[in-house]
Nucleic acid binder design. Structure first.
Lengths: 208, 208
DNA sequence: ACGATAATACCCCAATCAGGGGGGTATTTA
DNA sequence: TAAATACCCCCCTGATTGGGGTATTATCGT
């Protein structure tokens, strides 16, 4: 049984060629195409696609907004984003919104069918540059911008687990007042004035 | 000029074949091989490799520990991890430690040289399954496990930015006591008892 | 159209916790 | 030997937490 593909792409020529490309293979059937994704929810309920090809820039609603909307009611449909640029912000937004893969338009002719096959078998197709961006975003920020001492780092780690001063004192075996003075130093180095700020900054900047 | 490759792999047969595979191509020169990575820091300073192939499981020091050690003094060398399993924990640990790519041993013969080329041109080679794991880990946890109301979500978001009750009250235009009662509800739903715990949980579970 | 339920917005009291300001000593390292 | 690190203590104010409430709108199912 062929996989059901739904296409959203506002460029008429590209939309046509995507459709034709897929029609050449009997693995796939294009259940519908559209130049905007305003009716995406309705479309999905009616057409029950397995895979959606979604342009990022479209009039009315962007592809990223559409993915968010889809994920509210459906976690299983695979959505492959199509884009011209390997643009940092858009890529991350789309991935966080729940995209399954990321295809550059310039590579569409060779990569489209392999990419669809890849998502269907549990993969996440993306260009090498995007893969690198994703990996980089997960890596610890080289660590030493704030010049924490070993102890300060330990205590920040415990603070980030949500522990109170008392609990940290118990956990480390240090005196309560010692913890307090370490935390004062940590705040000074992080340039913050509360535990929540410190935790927020530490986690978001991957300091721990 | 050929790229300088350094190999750490405790299995003698595999280490030999990796070396031989690379020697077949004049793109690469294997500057050294070792069955453990205890002297990795010294090796790097002496041999100045461009790329390191690093087994994950080795006696003495694991490949992951070795990557961490490398990243303390060198951020540029590419490290490709070699592993038998697409094991969740190890993969993430290695990526967070600073690995540049992830190669499954069963695919080494076809994928090794393309993978090295890929890291050298700014990519991040990894198997489809690993790519999928990485992507999944970045995506928002579907949202509604804790059944926050719109307001509760707003306020949790502000709390996660490190704001105090007062600041949140100013920001939202609501009364201080209103913020307090929302935060009580948030704590109840999250099953926590302090702002730091809430922020920690919210950020780590990508609720905001 | 009806009550039930949920969401929103607000208030008080009491006890504990955290944050900013001081102060200090001992040990290790450069 | 000066600097850095690790450790400890006091005071005071203001913030946070946990326990009670009340009132007004929406929203939903029958």
């Amino acid at each position: 049984m062929p996989e059901r593909v739904l296409i959203y792409e506002d460029n008429d020529a590209l939309r046509k060629s995507l459709e034709e490309l897929l029609m050449l293979s009997d693995e796939f059937v294009v259940v519908s195409t559209a130049r905007d994704c305003l009716s995406v929810e309705e479309d999905i309920r009616q057409l029950n696609p397995d895979v959606i090809l979604m342009d990022i820039d479209m009039p009315g609603m962007t592809g990223i907004e559409a993915v968010k909307k889809i994920r509210v009611f459906n976690k299983k449909i695979f959505v492959i984003m199509l884009t011209v640029f390997e643009d940092n912000g858009h890529v991350f937004d789309a991935i966080c919104a729940g995209a399954s893969g990321y295809l550059l338009k310039k590579n569409v002719s060779e990569k489209l069918i392999p990419a669809i096959r890849e998502v269907l078998t549990g993969g996440a197709p993306m260009s090498p540059v995007i893969a690198k961006m994703v990996i980089s975003s997960m890596q610890k920020s080289s660590g030493k911008q704030y010049n924490f001492t070993v102890r300060e780092n330990d205590i920040l780690k415990l603070l980030c687990k949500g522990m109170s001063y008392k609990m940290i004192a118990n956990e480390t075996g240090l005196a309560f007042e010692t913890i307090r003075s370490y935390i004062k130093n940590i705040y000074e180095k992080l340039q913050v004035h509360s535990a929540t700020e410190a935790v927020s900054k530490a986690i978001n900047e991957k300091l721990v």
